[in-house]
Design a protein around this nucleic acid. Structure first.
Lengths: 203, 203
DNA sequence: CAACGTGTGTTGGATAATCAACGGGTGGTG
DNA sequence: CACCACCCGTTGATTATCCAACACACGTTG
């Protein structure tokens, strides 16, 4: 069990923080593509070679930054001991959609087509997945023979939420965030056909 | 000549900054006396032993912090190439008095009689002195035999300004800052008797 | 009194960050 | 073409910071 929060050297925390902070500022000002490693390290008052001790390139930086952000959002959304139920699924969906939305408007569109969008989305989905997997693992054991493993269920749930969120974000006109989240919850809990009002049609 | 700004290791700058920042925050919250080295380093996210690599104790920290602040104020008050004249003497006096005033109200009174007040004042005077000395040294050579050396003149001027500032700050009712500054300038340029309207009385 | 908790300064060894330098890539300009 | 300017990614040696530990002082409490 990797419960323990491996003590991280404060120097590491500091430089990571400085780099990420500088990166975010530059993102707001310039957009992703035109950012250079030098500019990051200069603004962070960190030696350029130090950057490479922590990240392999700016894509890596972007990736880990996104993951951390998403992880924080999720942790803040659900209490540590949250049971798996409709309300919490709803909250989770809401949070992810909000995050996707904020992100769209805030970043990554300054300089035409930044290449970072897919990166971001992959990071979001990945973190959502691992969060949900950990969450599902705290469920009591099955009372009837399961059709899917916990890992598979987590994968499906995360992709469902993520996919719906992306669809919603990119839609020409969006229903309310609340509506959307309940739709997702319905699909997740009842199954897609039932959620569509077509019970038994595919049975 | 120690003209060159000795390149300082960025790590040193950072930790010094973190420590000073933490210290200032604690000053506002607690006052000087109750501050502990541990609390400073904890808030600064700096190892306690690192503190001693930069300062001998909290008095030392206070001292250097005050000096730096005063130096900044003075540098911001006068342009680098400012000639020595009445207007600039006025500006200098004003700046010092303002600083003393702000300080009085802001800090060092939270917890009764903090022991740091004399420390601070000494630091202010010392920095004012060295600033003025450097300033006076840029004057052209004397045209008549001088009565006092540059160093002595700087000492006198700095103590005059400083003393007047302290007196003014502690007075029950204060004249305007502008008034005060012109009084000081008069005393400095005409001599005390003439400034008092008693020319020749002590001659 | 002793035992305890808390803060101080100091030390030696481990680790992270800095710095200068190198080779290589890319794009612009004479 | 050569030249220049800029950025990349890496290296080895140097320096700053971290960390655990120690001895000391002080006030409190049993």
């Amino acid at each position: 069990m990797a419960i323990s929060t491996e003590r991280i050297d404060p120097r590491v925390q500091r430089t990571r923080g400085l780099i990420q902070q500088a990166f975010q500022a530059l993102m707001r000002e310039q957009g992703f593509e035109s950012i250079t490693i030098q500019s990051i390290t200069e603004r962070a008052t960190v030696n350029r070679s130090t950057f490479y001790a922590h990240f392999t390139d700016k894509y890596d930086l972007m990736d880990t930054l996104m993951r951390e952000q998403v992880r924080d959002v999720l942790r803040r959304t659900l209490p540590d001991d949250a049971p798996v139920n409709r309300a919490h699924l709803h909250a989770l969906t809401r949070a992810i959609c909000e995050y996707l939305m904020n992100f769209q408007s805030a970043r990554c569109q300054a300089a035409g087509h930044d290449q970072c969008e897919p990166l971001i989305e992959a990071a979001v989905q990945a973190e959502l997945h691992s969060f949900i997997e950990a969450w599902f693992k705290r469920l009591p054991g099955p009372t009837t023979p399961p059709d899917v493993s916990v890992a598979m269920a987590a994968s499906i749930a995360s992709w469902t939420i993520f996919g719906a969120g992306l669809h919603w974000r990119n839609a020409a006109q969006r229903c309310s965030l609340d509506d959307l989240s309940w739709q997702v919850v319905a699909a997740l809990t009842k199954g897609v056909p039932a959620a569509m009002g077509q019970p038994g049609r595919l049975a």
